[in-house]
Write a protein that binds this DNA or RNA. Sequence first.
DNA 1: CTCGTTGGTAATCCGATGATTACTTGGGAC
DNA 2: GTCCCAAGTAATCATCGGATTACCAACGAG
Lengths: 206, 206
Amino acid sequence: MVVESLSGRIPAEQRREQILDAAIEQFGLSGYAGTTTDQVARAAGISQPYVVRMFGSKERLYVAAVERARDAVLDAFRAVLAAPAAEPDGHLMARLGAAYIDLVQDRGILRMLMQGFLGGADPVVGPVARAGFLEIYRMLRDEAGLAAADAVDFLAHGMLYNTLLTLALPEAADDTGRELLECAFGAKLDLVLRAVGPGSGSSGRA
Amino acid sequence: MVVESLSGRIPAEQRREQILDAAIEQFGLSGYAGTTTDQVARAAGISQPYVVRMFGSKERLYVAAVERARDAVLDAFRAVLAAPAAEPDGHLMARLGAAYIDLVQDRGILRMLMQGFLGGADPVVGPVARAGFLEIYRMLRDEAGLAAADAVDFLAHGMLYNTLLTLALPEAADDTGRELLECAFGAKLDLVLRAVGPGSGSSGRA
DNA sequence: CTCGTTGGTAATCCGATGATTACTTGGGAC
DNA sequence: GTCCCAAGTAATCATCGGATTACCAACGAG
């Protein structure tokens, strides 16, 4: 997970990417206010002042992390559109859905997206989050060619995925929870559970 | 919005309710870490130490606020089930959906719910949030009598509502946004927009 | 009236945290 | 080699925030 390569003196752009990876993980877990720049720095393997100096402020780092999470979604969907349909019975929406499930196996990205949505009321984060969401919708409609109603249905179930996964239901579900998961994810459930594994799989804190 | 009644010496239980109302509003806006106990206290019209003493700690107050938001949802749905169906064509799910839209006109409750979901990874909030979500699901299935697939579909669209509303899309939508809103809310859109009104309606900070 | 219980606050403490400043080191150009 | 810029850190600051302590004030019972 965390960058392990004992890294002396790395070009700034590469370091920037490492910081953003760490920021998504940490901000995703604890939100903007709940995450310290020092946590991000440690996760990226550098010192706290360098994080601040690289991005100017914590707030700007946060916005960059939100944008990066949005780009991850857009990239994942565009990869599906670029790839040839292997199976003829695989409808586009199903393939997009599977790609999304795959993407958000990285719970950092998933939670970062959700954090972004919740920032809708914030004067700085809000506009970024709204524009990002609409960009994804436009992509589904214009590039993937989904009808508006289909795109909305796709998004709705995506949001349910988001909720169930951030709730960590797959990791800790009783009978009711399992029924809900089966019904929500359908055939994709094994995709979800494969990553969780048979163990309790509780990922500890940093 | 904020309790205005110049209130000297109020019974503790009543004060507790005021604090919880304020907590839902504030925590919903800024999350757990982003909200100070002093903000909650001011919004409730009392002093900061009293808030802490009443609930023991900020964390316990937060958990209580999450539970209260959950109860608000359960109560709203049970009210629908208890009321006689006025119109025969009004399907149960549509009536439940309308009740939900109505409930989350209070954006504080809406955002508090979302904050709770995002706390799924937290060792304290997580279990509460998971149990609360499953409780709502069980209610839909057992008390409302929805088929599991219908309940899941209902929840999925509810989660899309949540996202669109926390993003504050109704308050600030371009053409794409309006199309998305129309498609997502359908006939319920006027219910949503009625509260927002023709003005910009940007509700200021506390 | 007085007294104890409940409702409530002012003052204060201590740790945490984002930012700033000043400093050090590595490595490529020539 | 030496020079200089990019990469990076240690030390420090000012502020904020949750919790604690000690104290004050209504109100009802007797």
